[in-house]
């Protein structure tokens, strides 16, 4: 498998197995680094962005911060107690 595919698989593993269905980019990056220690933020971002475009993943935003998640996993419209901005 190519590098991008490895990262993609690591993202899917992290996103489907973790306790949380929605997570910050940073947590996903840490998750990916468990299997690919030298994974850089920009390459993980590139793959994750492609997965959002392909609608494999989706973004949840309160307006102030953004969370990633696998499409269809967990709730899709969240009432969070989060202060926006």
């Amino acid at each position: 498998m190519g590098r991008d595919e490895d990262i993609r698989q690591a993202i899917i593993d992290y996103a489907s197995k973790g306790a949380k269905s929605k997570f910050y980019f940073k947590d996903m990056l840490t998750g990916v680094k468990k299997t690919i220690p030298d994974a850089g933020a920009s390459e993980v971002k590139k793959v994750a962005s492609a997965m959002v475009s392909e609608e494999v993943m989706e973004l949840l935003s309160t307006g102030s911060s953004t969370m990633y998640g696998l499409k269809g996993r967990g709730i899709s419209v969240e009432k969070s107690g989060d202060a926006g901005g």
């Binding site: 959002v52 475009s53 989706e58 935003s61 309160t62 307006g63 899709s76 419209v77 009432k79």
Partner: peptide, 22 residues
């Protein structure tokens, strides 16, 4: 007003703030 939600345009991860009413 609920706070937040999944909305956006394809390929973009920002710029649209989802607001829903309960």
């Amino acid at each position: 007003w609920k706070h937040g939600g999944i909305v956006g345009v394809l390929g973009y991860g920002g710029g649209i703030v989802g607001r829903y009413n309960d």
